[in-house]
Design a protein around this nucleic acid. Structure first.
Lengths: 230, 230
DNA sequence: GAAAGAGATTCTGGTCACGATCATGTGGAG
DNA sequence: CTCCACATGATCGTGACCAGAATCTCTTTC
């Protein structure tokens, strides 16, 4: 027997998706939902918390407040991954291996499918070089993923980047490393911009191989991604 | 200002992960959690619903009931993906392209890394042939993913298979298709069992290419994965 | 006249007390 | 020994209530 709150969750989620409710759309208030479903406030609120966690709604207080539709982004996916990684004690090595196989393909697809505007943006972003911090490095990979024109690759890369961001604090990053990274990113960006699929794939591959080497050299391969939990 | 229930969610999740609480471990009851956190029942229950949705706990009623730790499996990941697919109207073509690039790598890794026992199991499973229904076909890919020895690939493949299962109803599957699939699976299994990495990769690749062709031939490439929502 | 401040309003955030319901354990009656 | 009734312990769900945040309006004050 499914719980009453689960039914409410399903009902609202289906409504948002089927009716293609736009971001910012105001759903009925708690009170109205209670009346519509003939349920108590607690039940409705449990459902709201779950939907909130799904990133499907946002709840604001005050007059003109209420329950609003939001666009679920990749963060939920990222935390679902992070939870599994934490439970399974997934190692950093698994992470770099995965990227080493997948991201070159993404670069290839990006070189093949990106729009002209995207290519320009990518080149421009990498040329700002100096300003590139860790988060901007992650942005680079996200940009490439977005350019590949395949939702699944895009979600995938973004999601693991979210996990990665939490793990990856400014630990032992030298100035040289940063410069190397910037240089590699620029090179990949140029290949993609030029539509050179093979070149982009190779460039991305060697970039990630370098990261893999770095992990091995510092004995970080067996480091758990989330030793202390999410 | 984070909500009180969110704090409870974090606190319990951290506890489960940090203390490596085993599956089946009984957490404090609602009442005890209320007292421990100095919060009301509604707040605690909101937190429980969210944790339940995460697949981290299970709540049972009755004496000997209570709140129990469970092992989060890949289903949450699957539904997070499904939600994004539904919102973005992701097409079936994206799905098959993704698999076409990723799964051959997984087959390669499986051929390289699987244990002897896993190889035997895989061969045995494929040889039961006839009995293989749709769900067993999915199982095949999951088995291979598990054998590749990389958590990320494993989670990934399993998660998209969960999404796939919902979409893929016994629509237009002929007997011949099934036989072809069984044959391809057997061939892949043998290559993996033999440790032939190149062969396994090629076999998986052509297997998925066949699926891609099938989609194109039937004009299903642009079919949304979840037209009606999750 | 305009800006600042003091309510009034309308929502959600959260507490408390109570009953309903479900699953397990227990004690008899046959 | 089996089966049925009953108590028990936990979650499920309701209803009324107050607190707090955000917006609007109206008044005061300079």
């Amino acid at each position: 027997m499914p719980k009453a709150s689960d039914l409410v969750v399903d009902e609202i989620r289906r409504r948002v998706i089927r009716e293609r409710l736009p971001v910012g759309y105001r759903l009925p208030t708690e009170l109205e939902l209670m009346e519509q479903h003939g349920l108590g406030r607690v039940t409705v609120r449990e459902a709201l918390r779950v939907l909130e966690r799904d990133g499907l709604i946002e709840v604001k207080r005050g007059p003109k407040g209420g329950i609003f539709v939001t666009k679920p982004d990749v963060r939920q996916l990222g935390s679902a991954f992070a939870l599994l990684f934490a439970i399974r004690d997934t190692r950093l090595g698994h992470f770099s291996t995965f990227r080493g196989y997948v991201e070159p393909v993404v670069a290839r697809l990006a070189a093949m499918n990106a729009t002209d505007e995207q290519r320009e943006n990518l080149v421009r972003a990498t040329e700002q070089g100096r300003a590139e911090s860790t988060s901007r490095a992650v942005d680079f990979h996200s940009m490439v993923a977005e350019m590949c024109g395949n939702d699944m690759f895009e979600f995938m890369i973004d999601a693991i980047n979210v996990s990665f961001e939490r793990h990856f604090r400014h630990d032992m990053i030298t100035e040289t490393d940063r410069e190397d990274t910037d240089f590699a990113h620029r090179r990949i960006a140029q290949k993609i911009a030029a539509g050179d699929a093979d070149g982009a794939e190779r460039a991305m591959s060697s970039h990630l191989l370098a990261y893999d080497e770095y992990l091995k050299k510092n004995g970080l391969t067996e480091e758990p991604l989330f030793p202390e939990g999410v």
